[in-house]
């Protein structure tokens, strides 16, 4: 993968990731959000956040399989776009749907399981967005990677949130669940190998110590 194709891919990503926001902005002025715009905008932002989260998770396996090392450059912006839409989704729910009524908000979070998991997923995304800067990556060192494994939990909770809120047609949430399962499963092999390599290395070190 050349630097140029990565640049092209980046442009494509920015345009696509901003498309839902542009669509919402356009619809607000041109009236294509329908007669229940709050519901429509909630759905579009939620769906965008989930799709972007899955795309973020797809970067590593695709990079590994296609040997496109530079693809890693897409991971942070994709993740931040996912957070951007999750934040919009959360804000719309809190401000427009519930009008900042704290009692309604807490009742929803405590008593409605699909909101409980959706809210948890959003909260877990916050530290990931905050620590996505170079400074934080340097400061956290190896712990940064450990922290960012939270994204596996967030994505899982996000898909559960989607599955639990639909009334009858579960085909899309199930498709998302299938893709997420594949993305998570694709990490098991490499993770296993890495562990084996590390064990072998430490065994070698021990051997060297004992013979030396």
């Amino acid at each position: 993968m050349t630097a140029r194709s990565v640049r092209r891919l980046k442009v494509l990503m920015w345009v696509s990731a901003l498309a839902p926001a542009a669509w919402i902005a356009g619809g607000t002025f041109r009236g294509w959000l329908g007669v229940n715009p709050i519901e429509k905008v909630t759905h579009v932002t939620g769906l965008s956040a989930l799709v972007l989260l899955l795309l973020t998770l797809a970067v590593t396996p695709v990079r590994r399989m296609a040997r496109w090392n530079r693809l890693i450059q897409l991971r942070r912006p994709l993740g931040l776009f996912a957070f951007f839409y999750a934040f919009l989704h959360f804000s719309i729910w809190m401000a427009l749907d519930l009008g900042f009524q704290l009692s309604w908000i807490s009742e929803d979070i405590m008593e409605r399981p699909y909101i409980t998991v959706g809210f948890t997923a959003f909260v877990l995304l916050i530290p990931l967005a905050v620590t996505s800067t170079r400074g934080w990556i340097r400061r956290l060192g190896r712990r940064w990677a450990t922290l960012h494994r939270l994204v596996y939990i967030t994505a899982t909770l996000g898909v559960i949130h989607f599955y639990w809120l639909v009334k009858a047609d579960t085909s899309l949430p199930l498709l998302f669940a299938g893709i997420l399962t594949l993305l998570l499963a694709s990490r098991i092999g490499p993770w296993h190998e890495k562990r084996k390599r590390r064990q072998a290395a430490s065994a070698r070190r021990r051997q060297q110590l004992s013979t030396g």
């Binding site: 696509s16 990731a17 498309a19 839902p20 669509w23 356009g26 619809g27 041109r30 009236g31 294509w32 579009v44 769906l47 965008s48 799709v51 972007l52 795309l55």
Partner: peptide, 16 residues
Amino acid sequence: MLIRRPPDIPSSEITP
């Protein structure tokens, strides 16, 4: 990537 297609409404139908 989610790109929702706008509904097929000609611009003449859209109410300001």
